[in-house]
Simulated assay, not measured.
Amino acid sequence: MHALICGSMAFDTIMVFQDRFRHHILPEKVHMLNVSFLVPEMRREFGGCAGNIAYNLKLLGGSPLVMATVGDDFAPYQARLESLGIAQQHIQRVPQSFTAQAFITTDLDDNQITAFHPGAMTQSHLNRVADAKQVSLGIVAPDGRDGMLQHAREFKAAGIPFIFDPGQGMPMFNGEELLAFIELADYVAVNDYEAQLLQERTGLTLDAIAGKVRALIVTRGGEGSQIYADGERLDIPCVQAEAVVDPTGCGDAYRAGLMYGIMHSLGWLKTGRLAALLGALKIARRGAQNHVFDRGAIAAMYLEQFGERLW
């Protein structure tokens, strides 16, 4: 059976400014800002929530199906997915558009200025969940607004359990819409900031949200994560990473672990630990898809970290 991953496919163009923004942005002149930063260091990474989740799930031995809309410039990403053996039949090209992409400039203090172009992502509602076959679990990850609303309803109508993962798409929805997502979803996954925003917009506590779904998962960065399920809260510690290099894509790696654990009935403790391990592997490498592992390596790391077999 497959995991259907509804979300964005994107290119991330990352540039490094070898100075500090504060030396070039005058507070008293922000009303007439006109600055230019020389960025001799630049790299282009493969990203997007759906792409990142699928990448990690594939490395675990899972069978991800990506459902996304992309632009005319998608060819390099297409070639990458082919090399990884990730199915593309539900990735739809939107003519005369760009694939979603972020342009990120970082200074020496790790401050960032980001411009995001959604491009073809805004047309994600062109895809239909019903077109995907043999799906046992889905996820509605950050994507076009209309697509996220539609895919949540379609998962429910098809009887396919799914994770609602609003991520950076949270600001697009009001309290009533977020409540509707929670009512439709089987699982909700957010980070600690998003959890606070979700509570404020819906008027529900975390315990109340958890009571409406099979599980509520809250990631807390270096403080680990919490899984609310079966009337209890399970605290999952953070796994010590080889190095802390780049947090981009850590949440997506964690969600791939969640999906694998749910699909293989690993139980919440083992599922949370696997997800945390994937996050630690990701943070040690730059970019969202440059860490590499296989099932044997994951099993060995899991045994070393937790003193028990993973599978």
Rank of each mutant, 00 (worst) to 15 (best):
260 Y>D: 09
149 L>I: 06
285 R>I: 04
104 I>D: 06
138 G>C: 06
272 G>P: 11
98 F>D: 13
240 Q>E: 15
229 A>S: 15
132 A>S: 10
192 D>Y: 06
296 G>N: 14
74 F>W: 06
290 N>L: 12
269 L>A: 11
180 A>S: 03
308 E>V: 01
222 G>R: 09
305 Q>N: 02
226 Q>N: 14
265 S>P: 08
168 Q>H: 08
281 L>A: 04
217 I>E: 07
207 D>L: 02
181 F>R: 00
273 R>M: 12
184 L>F: 00
295 R>K: 03
187 Y>S: 03
64 P>L: 07
252 D>C: 12
34 N>M: 04
38 L>Q: 09
184 L>A: 03
48 G>W: 07
66 V>I: 15
53 I>R: 04
45 E>N: 10
29 K>F: 12
281 L>D: 05
137 L>N: 02
75 A>E: 15
14 I>G: 08
37 F>W: 07
177 E>M: 00
133 K>N: 07
206 L>R: 15
220 R>C: 14
178 L>D: 01
160 I>W: 03
40 P>Y: 09
145 R>N: 06
310 L>W: 00
158 A>S: 15
144 G>K: 02
160 I>E: 02
152 A>V: 12
135 V>R: 09
48 G>H: 08
238 C>V: 15
223 E>Y: 13
180 A>H: 01
227 I>Y: 07
196 Q>S: 03
57 L>D: 07
248 T>E: 13
97 S>I: 00
247 P>E: 13
71 G>E: 07
144 G>M: 03
43 R>V: 13
243 A>N: 14
252 D>V: 10
292 V>M: 01
41 E>A: 03
133 K>I: 05
293 F>E: 00
56 N>R: 04
164 F>R: 11
80 R>Y: 13
151 H>V: 06
166 P>N: 02
101 Q>S: 13
97 S>L: 06
106 T>E: 15
213 V>T: 11
63 S>C: 10
14 I>K: 15
217 I>R: 04
303 L>E: 10
63 S>M: 09
281 L>N: 07
47 G>M: 05
